[in-house]
Design a protein around this nucleic acid. Structure first.
Length: 809
RNA sequence: GCCGAGGUGGCGAAAUUGGCAGACGCACUGGCUUCAGGUGCCAGCGAUCGCAAGAUCAUAGGAGUUCGAGUCUCCUCCUCGGCACCA
């Protein structure tokens, strides 16, 4: 019989029929302008680069859809839009790989993705979909770029930047993962180039501070804190003997200044050339500088490696604390991009300086002692980086190191200073497939933004779109594109030919969904106010310091320029776990990528949704195994079987009330906290109880189907319709979510556990309300307990009502 | 090295405030049923000892607090993720 049910109709067919009913009724299209109880339910939109949707992506999408369906049934106007992040280097690289043109490929991947996304059973608001490569979309990406420029937050600067030799473009710091290109894994090299930057560093403190106010997964907040990397310290100037220049250093330990026995400049430090005349070993120094430039980030930062460096002969600095002349080195363990690019080296209290000092036989002077006031400090075999009292520090001797920070900084005329590890967002890319940066370089007027009325600057079709690697975008070879007149002086000018980073496209897309038809103003105040910030956002932890960082920055900027009234885009964000296959991360190179297509057509969306949800909590990830799917298949077959056999004329059954109300409570709570696995467990228990019962009534089935609806939207809808007769009924997904009555949750009796010395020896049914005295009397009569307490003195009795009694002898 | 999350049966995992460890599912075993071939039903299923009743042990390892610890404290080990020569 059950076999018959399955064979009668392929799951995909009946699901398709139900989908078209949903489309007709438009139950997933809230009225954006007029919604009464708006709820913005969002998932990170996919980039259609690879061979289609990934099973992990499907788990995320269906996962948040369960939440959206739950909220919709609770009476919210749920808005769950979908779009494609199709612009950018990832899509372009994929196009190159399969030897296609990204502009032509976009249409194909778009179609394929939307087809795949249609079958997973999500309540998407299809009418609002967007693609970042649509000129109507990137017009606004460009517009935002111009606003940043007008507000001094976009600028051009020559700097040492990350260059991917394989993608042939510069990258932001966030796109370099342990020295490798985030996209292709190639080791990144440093190049000195003039590029466009966004002044994200101006927002470092605010982004850090706000983390305490938003409800986000803790691991993401931690990653952002690490990335922003705040450290409090001081800037102190060191004079150079016989020169007017000074060496400014940043240090978090100004208290150790008396222990600074040498200084180090980064090889790229401007003083290296400024002091050239004084440097006696010029040849050696410039050789070191040249070599340092050639090294990749990876080589430079390998931990085990010996430190290298060159003494600047003829240069002596003065320690401002004690007037001592100290040598100055250049070494690549000091980074040009952090602090001031120069350090005072205190080998006794910094392990890197300690290592360097030992290699170069430099004095190590201890100035912070952990054993104060003992006169003798231990001979160090490693740097002491902790706190203590100052020694060998002139008038500061005996002072607590923590207090000495401020004192010594003041003593030498330094300033307390906070530094951040975060660096400005390098936004330009020497690639084709992105929004052209809307700027014009005029010989007379300098940089002039494209007038807003001329937006979008359309990306022209170029047959040869491949990156050339000459530090220019392929657009630089198209004269009709770059040759323009200056909007200000009408003189000869050249259009910027770089495109912007794909992460700018995705930094603001949640605004666009709200006003997809509007071409005049994407920040319509009433809509923005009604729907934003996003109520619930779900996505991958890999975007901790990419998308999730940039989008916070852009939102803050939009607030500061008066377009919106909030500064955090997502009230609540939850990171989902990673789906593995046989314990390994899925990747094309391993050949273990699970494509959802075959599974969805074989088992149907309901089974796949529930299987992926049942694996583990959404935040956890899990291993994809075919074997586990059968449990869910069986469950849904049992649901259908029960549905056929229950007595439709019976209205209600008192004996099932307990499991009904428990299930409502459990499923409601678990949906709210995204613990779908235990919600589904409860549905299984609910079903088993009904199967065992002789008197399943219509009311029980109604509640069961409603609780099932977020997880298996098709089966729930189909059975709901059958339950309500043949005529058209409102969808179960817009029906009211059930509430539980606490009266049904408790029994009149419970099983009391009887322990002796903390070990369970017996159990007994007792009334819900029973006095300790009565329990004690009862326990004494229990045959199983007698031998354990016979002839022993009872020392103590612990009675926990509704739980247990423990007799200590 | 620093920061974060973890470590529970053969497997995925459950376990409000400390109170019956292993819910639910997979796999497995035995039985029933069906036309024998991926999907029905019933039962069993942490380990050890035992015919059984039951006992003992068991939540990475060790110590501690407690009548009682997967849960709290301290130490050690391991896994995953982030940062990493950041001064």
């Amino acid at each position: 019989m059950c076999r018959g049910v399955l064979n009668s109709m392929k799951p995909s067919q009946s699901e398709k029929r139900i989908r078209s009913q949903w489309d007709k009724k438009k139950i997933y299209e809230p009225d954006i302008a007029k919604a009464k109880r708006p709820f913005y339910n969002l998932m990170m939109f996919p980039y259609p680069s690879a061979e289609g949707l990934h099973i992990g992506g499907v788990r995320t999408f269906t996962g948040i859809d369960m939440y959206g369906r739950f909220k919709r049934m609770q009476g919210y106007d749920v808005f769950e839009p979908i779009g494609l992040d199709g612009f950018g280097i990832h899509s372009e690289n994929y196009a190159m790989k399969i030897k296609a043109h990204p502009m032509r490929l976009a249409g194909k991947t778009e179609k394929r993705f939307y087809e795949q996304l249609a079958v997973i059973g999500n309540g998407f608001a299809w009418n609002e979909r967007l693609e970042t490569y649509d000129p109507d979309y990137y017009k606004w990406t460009q517009w935002i770029f111009i606003q940043l420029y007008k507000n001094g937050l976009a600028y051009r600067k020559k700097a040492l930047v990350n260059w991917c030799p394989s993608c042939l473009t510069v990258l932001s710091d966030e796109q370099v993962v342990s020295g490798e290109c985030e996209r292709c894994g190639t080791a990144v090299v440093k190049k000195d180039l003039e590029q466009w930057f966004f002044r994200i560093t101006k927002y470092a403190e605010r982004m850090l501070r706000n983390l305490d106010t938003i409800d986000w997964s803790e691991n993401i907040k931690m990653a952002q804190r690490n990335w922003i990397g705040k450290s409090d310290g001081a800037e102190i100037d060191f004079k150079i003997l016989g020169a007017k220049e000074r060496i400014r250093v940043f240090t978090t330990r100004p208290d150790t200044l008396f222990g600074a026995t040498y200084m180090v400049l980064a090889p790229e430090h401007p003083l290296v050339s400024a002091l050239e005349e004084k440097i006696e070993n010029r040849a050696e120094v410039s050789r070191y500088v040249r070599d340092a430039k050639k090294k990749s980030e990876m080589e430079r930062t390998r931990e085990e490696k010996e430190k290298t460096g060159v003494l600047l002969r003829g240069v002596k600095a003065l320690n401002p604390a004690n007037g001592e002349g100290i040598p100055v080195f250049i070494a690549d363990y000091v980074l040009a991009g952090y602090g001031t690019g120069a350090i005072m080296a205190v080998p006794a209290h910094d392990k890197r300086d300690f290592q360097f000092a030992n290699q170069f036989k430099l004095p190590i002077r201890m100035v912070v002692c952990p054993h104060y006031p003992e006169k003798t400090c231990p001979v160090l075999d490693t740097a002491y980086e902790g706190q203590g009292h100052l020694v060998d520090s002139g008038k500061f001797n005996g002072m607590k190191s923590e207090d000495a920070k401020k004192e010594i900084t003041g003593f030498v005329g330094g300033t307390l200073k906070t530094t951040y590890r975060l660096r400005d967002w390098l936004i330009s890319r020497q690639r084709y497939w992105g929004p052209p940066i809307p700027m014009i370089h005029c010989e007379r007027c300098g940089i002039v933004p494209v007038p807003e009325k001329d937006l979008p600057v359309k990306l022209p079709f170029i047959k040869d779109f491949q990156p050339k690697g000459k530090g220019e975008s392929p657009l630089a070879s198209l004269k009709s594109f770059y040759q323009v007149k200056c909007p200000q002086c009408k003189g000869k000018a050249r259009r910027e030919t770089d495109v912007s980073d794909t992460f700018l496209d995705s930094a603001w897309y949640f605004f666009r969904y709200l006003d997809i038809k509007n071409k005049k103003n994407i920040f319509d105040a009433t809509r923005v106010k009604k729907w934003l910030p996003v109520d619930m956002y779900i996505g991958g932890a890999e975007h901790s310091v990419l998308h999730l960082l940039y989008t916070r920055f852009i939102t803050m900027v939009l607030k500061d320029i008066g377009l919106i009234s909030f500064e955090e885009p997502f009230k609540k964000f939850r990171a989902h776990g990673l789906i593995t296959k046989d314990g390994a991360k899925m990747s094309k190179s391993k050949g273990n990528v699970v494509s959802p297509d075959a599974y969805f057509s074989k088992y149907g969306a309901d089974v796949m949704r529930m299987y992926l949800a049942f694996l583990a909590p959404l935040s956890e990830g899990g291993d994809f195994r075919d074997a586990g799917i059968s449990g869910i298949t069986r469950f849904l077959l049992r649901v259908r079987k029960l549905f056929k056999t229950f007595d439709k004329n019976k209205k209600s059954s008192p004996n099932l009330q307990k499991v009904v109300h428990r299930s409502i409570k459990k499923v409601t709570e678990d949906l709210e906290s995204l613990r779908y696995n235990t919600a589904i467990s409860q549905l299984m228990i609910f079903l088993s109880e009904m199967e065992k019962s002789e008197e399943v009534a219509k009311d029980n089935i109604i509640i069961f189907l409603k609780l099932l609806a977020p997880f298996a939207p098709f089966a729930a809808e189909e059975l709901w319709q059958k339950l309500n007769g043949k005529k058209i009924v409102p969808s179960i997904h817009t029906s009211e979510w059930p509430t539980y009555d606490p009266r049904y949750l408790e029994d009149s009796t419970y099983v009391l556990v009887i322990q002796v010395n903390g070990k369970i020896r017996d159990q007994v049914d007792v009334p819900m309300v029973i006095s300790q005295k009565d329990v004690e009397a009862l326990v004494e009569t229990r045959e199983k307990i007698k031998p354990w307490i016979f002839g022993k003195k009872i020392k103590k009795i612990i009675f926990v009502p509704k739980k247990l009694i423990n007799i200590v002898v």
